[in-house]
Amino acid sequence: MEEIKGSLSKPAAVIACIGMTLFYVATLYAPTLILRLPPPHSFNNFMTRRFICAAVSSVAFVIICALLLPIRSGDASYLFGVYGIRSDHIWQAVLLPLFLTSLMYAGSLVLLASKWMEHRNQDRRPLLCCIKTTLLRFPSQMSSVASDVLFWRNLVVSSILNSNFNEQAPLTEELVFRASHLNHMAEIYSRHNYSLREASMVVGLQLGYTVVFGSYASFLFIRTGNLACPLVAHVFCNYMGLPVLFVQRKGLVSVAFVAGTLSFAWLLFPLTRPDLYNERTNSCRCWQGYCLWN
């Protein structure tokens, strides 16, 4: 594989990031503000329109990045590798980041387990009967989830304002774009009858959380060179919501959160070692070169 020479200058990288941010947000509002299309008559139509806008932006950004980055090969596997789209080491890329991210949710998982146990005690059915019922319901539940537009919004496709502020789009954000979320200020202020102070607090908390998670997701991609790593972590975080730190009369939840956080800090670098996700080679496909062994 041909070694990449040259690099993208920092000013060019900053300008490109700002330009893509503005273009992404503008594309989301383009149907009504630019194309002057009538408002969608249903929520599903609104979401479909947003999905199309996000897809257009994402395709455009993939092409723009391919032109900006110092890529010197047109081979398909090489180009996919630049974006971290790879089939090798897939189990490591899925399981290790999932386990690492779940450590930050140790308190949440303990809380879910305690609620399940409480429900189990109230149900008073044999454990095997509960497991059988759950397995029988699983196909229909998956079918219902797959046909739910909210599932595709929150866990797959596009970054859209919703009541659960920490949900952003794994696919579009991890592939080419990470939203700034500041555009939500006007929507919260005007459509949800929030005061300017309340809207600022909501967006500020949202922005703070997404900056922290964005840094973590970018760290995963740089360390591993595999898009599946931040994608899996993003989907899991969207599903779980904010980590649970404290629950009244359930001290074990706080203990679990602290233990999980310490374990996360201890295992962060060992579980993201580049050699776990790449062959020990000097021709790594990561364009930024962080996975090279020389």
Rank of each mutant, 00 (worst) to 15 (best):
I188D: 00
L136F: 03
R191P: 06
H184S: 12
I160A: 15
E118V: 12
C130T: 15
P126D: 03
G107N: 01
Y189L: 05
R124N: 14
H181I: 13
A113D: 14
S147F: 04
Y189F: 05
I160H: 08
V156H: 00
V176D: 02
A169S: 06
T133E: 15
D148C: 05
L109E: 04
L171V: 03
M117L: 06
C129P: 02
V149P: 05
M142G: 08
G107H: 02
L182D: 14
S159P: 02
S163D: 13
L128C: 12
R125N: 08
Q141R: 09
S140Q: 10
E173K: 01
L155P: 00
T133G: 15
G107A: 10
L100T: 00
S140C: 08
M104L: 11
A169D: 02
L109A: 08
T133I: 12
M185E: 10
E167T: 15
N166W: 06
N166Q: 12
L109F: 05
C130E: 14
A106T: 01
I188W: 11
H192M: 11
M117H: 10
W116A: 12
V145H: 09
R124G: 10
S158W: 00
N162E: 13
G107L: 05
C129F: 10
S159L: 01
R124W: 02
N162G: 14
S102Q: 14
N162R: 14
L136K: 09
M104P: 00
W116T: 15
N183Q: 07
F177N: 05
H181K: 11
S190I: 13
